[in-house]
Nucleic acid binder design. Structure first.
Lengths: 134, 134
DNA sequence: CAGGATCCAAGTGGATACTG
DNA sequence: CAGTATCCACTTGGATCCTG
């Protein structure tokens, strides 16, 4: 598919709606994916530990995010048959590979806050179309 | 803020809900941001050119995305006072800096399609919680 | 051509309560 | 503890029509 494009040796093009790589990009475009993968990049973690690290995430979103990551082969889930339950999550090889990139984005977000806040202030007096959306 | 955390020399922590870097990360977690910034990384482009490159984006989402990027200082918008209208968009220095990272993610998405498709197939027989969400 | 204005269907995600 | 289930407010984003 699309292998006739010389710029795309792998035959995938995320700019195309029907391309599988587009759905991968879509999966990655979630703030919770960034943060959960980021939290797991420190090592194997339990559900509750993740919930505490990723501030503001609800149990529902945490579970949902972990399930998607597991489905796509980025996270391994291990259940211990004990009471009370104990479940641990860990990045796979593929997940660790991705985590490097995502952490760079996260670091970038932290590093460039001043410029962006400044830009927003400039744009603010007062809002145009961008006001509604975050 | 948060400057008492030795791991965060910049004093920002995207894991914290109220931290400005969290809102930056939130802004970046959009498939359209990835693709529009990606399209602009090839150079200055007109509205219509972007619409054609980023398959499936509606005029509304394109404009909205561009406005957010402009507001945050990642994109410059230049209007030519001619008829019919001509508007061009271009990445700023900060935008080009970001584009490098985002393009890596996009390339990653394209490169790892096979593994992810395989993982999804394994997970499929048949769906658990991850089925509903993309 | 660029994009504003509406309308609306569907998805997202938060809050809360409950269970093995 | 690690979820699941439910309800619901809000947002997202597509479709459509309109204008300088």
């Amino acid at each position: 598919m699309y292998s006739n494009d010389p710029d795309k040796p792998f035959g995938y093009d995320a700019f195309r709606r029907e391309c599988m790589s587009h759905t991968v990009l879509e999966m990655l475009s979630s703030k919770w994916v960034y943060l959960v993968v980021g939290a797991l990049s420190f090592g194997r973690r339990r559900h509750g530990e993740l919930a505490r690290k990723v501030e503001g995430i609800t149990p529902k979103m945490l579970t949902q995010t972990l399930r998607v990551l597991e489905r796509d082969g980025l996270v391994l889930r291990e259940v211990f048959p004990v009471i009370p339950p104990r479940v641990e999550y860990e990045l796979t090889e593929l997940g660790r590979n991705l985590a490097g990139l995502l952490n760079e984005i996260r670091a970038w977000s932290e590093r460039h806050v001043p410029e962006i806040v400044e830009a927003r202030k400039q744009a603010s007096p007062d809002s145009e179309g961008a006001s509604a959306a975050l």
